[in-house]
Amino acid sequence: APHATGLGFSEVACDSPDAEQAALTAVDYLNQHLQRGFKHTLNQVDKVKVWPRRPFGEVYELELDTLETTCHVLDPTPLANCSVRQLVDHAVEGDCDFHVLKQDGQFTVMHAQCHSNPDSAEDVQKVCPTCALLASFNDSRVVNTVNAALNAFNERNNGTYFKMVEISRAQNTPPPVSTFVEFVVAATDCTVQGAADPTKCNLLAEKQYGFCKASLVRRLEDEELSVTCKVFQKQPQPASVDAAGPAPAVDQAAPPAPPANPPASLL
C-alpha cells in the first residue's frame, strides 16, 4: 500500500511494479522526443512520490538516473537491444524529473525535464588512465576525420549523395594519434556525381538517415581511414515536429511501430 506521508503525497518503493512501469514509460517518452545523440536507458529510480489527481488517477513524480546507450536516437533498434555505453568510453549520464499520470491502468507522461552530462574525466581515468576522453565537435582533427569519412562513404556509395546531419561523439587518442568519430548522415536529392555544391542538395521529404562510425589513425607520414555506415529505412515526415521540446503527453499504449525490414548496412 502507498506509504502515506500526511503531506498530500504518498511514498512508494522505487522498485515497486508501478514505479518501475512509470519509469519505463518515462524513458520511452524521453527516447521518442530526443532529437539528437543517443538513446538513454534507465539506470536507477532515485525518488518517487505519488500524488492523488482529481477527479481520477494518480501522478507519479519521479527522479530518474539514465545512461547513454550505443544506439543513436534515429536508429530503429529497440532499446532493449541497445548496449549501455561503458564508463571507459566516456559515457553520458542523464538526470530526469518526470510527472507520469496513471489512469485506468495506463501511464502517460505529463511533464519531462532532463539534463545530461558526460561522466567526469576523473571518473573515467580512475577506471582507465589511458582511455580517450570525449573531444569537442569543433576540434580540427574531429572535423577533418568526419569530412574525410563522409567523402569516403559517398565515393564508395555510388548513387545518392549523403549529407552530414550531426556529429554525435568524438574522441582523440594519444600516439599512435587516432581520432574516432560517430556521426549521422542523411540522403539528399543529389547524386554523388551531381553534388558539386553540396549546399544545394536537400534532404529527401521522406528522410533516410544513416549512422556512421569512423576512425583516422595517423602514423608518421601515413593515415589510415576506416568508415562504416548503417543506413536506416526511410522515415515518413511526422505531421508536426515540436522543435522546442517534448509534447505535453504521449499515448504509451500506441508506440510507433518499428520498420518492418531490418536496417540496411553500407560499408
Binding site: 506509504h3 502515506a4 506521508t5 500526511g6 503531506l7 511514498e11 512508494v12 518503493a13 522505487c14 522498485d15 514505479a19 518501475e20 536507458t41 534507465l42 539506470n43 536507477q44 529510480v45 532515485d46 525518488k47 518517487v48 538516473d65 545512461l67 549501455v84 564508463l87 549520464e93 561522466d119 571518473d123
Partner: peptide, 27 residues
Amino acid sequence: KVVQSGPAGAAGPAVRLCPGRVRHFRI
C-alpha cells in the same frame, strides 16, 4: 522531510523505499 515509518505499533525493521536498484553500474 517527515515520513511516517508505518502503522502505529508496527514492529520490524524499517523498509528502505528509495533509491531503487542500480540496473547497470553506479556512476
